[in-house]
Design a binder for these strands. Sequence first.
DNA 1: TTAAAGGGGACTATTTTAGTCCTATTTGCC
DNA 2: GGCAAATAGGACTAAAATAGTCCCCTTTAA
Lengths: 154, 154
Amino acid sequence: MLRISRLTDYGTVVLAYLARRGQAVSSAADVATATGLGLPTVSKLLKTLGKAGLVRSTRGPQGGYRLARAPADISARDVIDALEGPVSITDCSSGDRPCELESHCHVGTTWQRINVSIRRALADISLLDLQSDDCQAPQFEFAGLPINVERKVN
Amino acid sequence: MLRISRLTDYGTVVLAYLARRGQAVSSAADVATATGLGLPTVSKLLKTLGKAGLVRSTRGPQGGYRLARAPADISARDVIDALEGPVSITDCSSGDRPCELESHCHVGTTWQRINVSIRRALADISLLDLQSDDCQAPQFEFAGLPINVERKVN
DNA sequence: TTAAAGGGGACTATTTTAGTCCTATTTGCC
DNA sequence: GGCAAATAGGACTAAAATAGTCCCCTTTAA
């Protein structure tokens, strides 16, 4: 349920790496090597993160990327918004034309409220929390059943 | 970000309708007509919700569906788990074989913790909250920009 | 016995996501 | 001034997840 995209997951890996590099500048190639992700993918991620203002770039030889602000000031929500867009939890909402389910629909604003509370939870987690983790995540369970998943690498 | 699938959204519409019908039994066709959704889709949803134990079915003529328990006892999390599966927020976790990013990875358990807090928030919302809503959701904003989305109908 | 319902699942189409690649621009350095 | 190392932008393709349809089976009230 409610999963983040793989790219967002990778994004946190990339950001965590930059966080550990402090103020030093790292090229996309460096980051790719260090994280084990593909260069085109890392490059694309860093460009997007740059547009969102989470990393700052320097062009030309010896150029590269570094965090735009302190790790503590970059939240999980920032990362998700940057890589997935600030889209709502559900498609239903009224823009310039009303919801097509019109009179039938009996759900709506609550999803928005849920959305807000989720966003709040995500805003409380900073890169600092994310980077302190280990790859060997503990077995995750639901209803007593172990959930067996892995991080795919391109 | 973090959106629920359209089917899950529809699922809440269907459940909200059944909630308003109280103990009365409604056929899939009734529900489809009342909600404006397609019959095959509604039928599929109800089957899935039945397996998950959220609705109870009666076969044969005059058969149909009704909620398996009180609306207050059906949470948003129940609905999401039923229709999307209890999948974690990220793919990374160690099952029988370890995460392929191995030594590079510096993110992991925090996503799981975030996941838990999101699940908690979702568990606090019941069908009662969902059904009291109106279709005309208020304009939703992010960073001052209005988000313009709509509910698609098949 | 018939017909109205749901049960199960295969199948197809659509949409989203991921990943690659090409060309342009910037800029340090010789 | 020119070369080469880097990012910027975006088009394009491939792969995967999601949505939607359909068919045949079982159950059961009338």
